[in-house]
Design a protein around this nucleic acid. Sequence first.
DNA 1: AGCCAGGTCTTCG
DNA 2: CGAAGACATGGC
Length: 276
Amino acid sequence: MDTIKFSSEYFNAKDTLLCGQIFRYLPYKKGYLIFSLDKCAYCYTENDYTYIISNDKEYFYNYFDLKKDYSIIYNSIKTYGDFITKIATLGKGIRLLKQDITENLFSFIISQNNNIPRIKGIIERLCENLGEKRFLNEIEYYSFPSVDKMSEMDVEFYKSIGLGYRAPYIKRLAEDIKGGLDLNSFNNLSTKSLKIALNNLYGVGPKVTDCVTLFGFNRGDSFPVDTWIEKVYKENFNGTLSDRKKISEWFINKFGENSGIIQQYLFYYKRSLERL
DNA sequence: AGCCAGGTCTTCG
DNA sequence: CGAAGACATGGC
């Protein structure tokens, strides 16, 4: 069991988990459990210190992007005006997680035209059925399935865990990866080429592409546009475009490399905070 | 009960 | 090219 302890005003588990970048987490005791691949971390904050107890310290140090100084990003973002400053302050504890590319891609294919509680449920059933049992101390959980295992299952299985019309997309991606598609090699591509490559995968459109370039490939010049972002664009930016790809380009043109983190602030604000 | 959810694919002008 | 309809399921 490994513990990471740090003091940071730029990290908050709740902000980081509720901004829509990850679906495998649970409230637990004083904080949250977070699952990635076959690993698990228990994260909580006490007396201004955050503790991350896990079964792979180095993995989660990287996963939570702890060596990056978010104060630099936070302060540079303040030049974008009152509204951006406000939402950045509200979501100050958000960190862009450095997720596993494969798990992230499967997860966001599942996410399309779906709601977050249901997405969480489907991914949980995927892990319970096809993953391997693991422990963090006395906590039992299941790993994210291997591609080999997923490629063995038929479309009917995927429908049975609630995937609906997305079932063939999952089956096909698993088969393609098993057949030699090397997602990690995409790391060498420019963001522009990367987006084209991802968009060409079956079941992956512009929105899922932007999520994966941002959450899996850590490209800050990505701006996923979903129904919530479309709403914030119209209501808070007086936007008139309706094509989501064009809305995404509009934001990237405005925020450049900071697009990704600002998108997270906006999503979190619109979906979880505005009504408060 | 009916609209909606972190959309994409196919088909048709 | 862009617009329109189909698509599974269940949360709220």
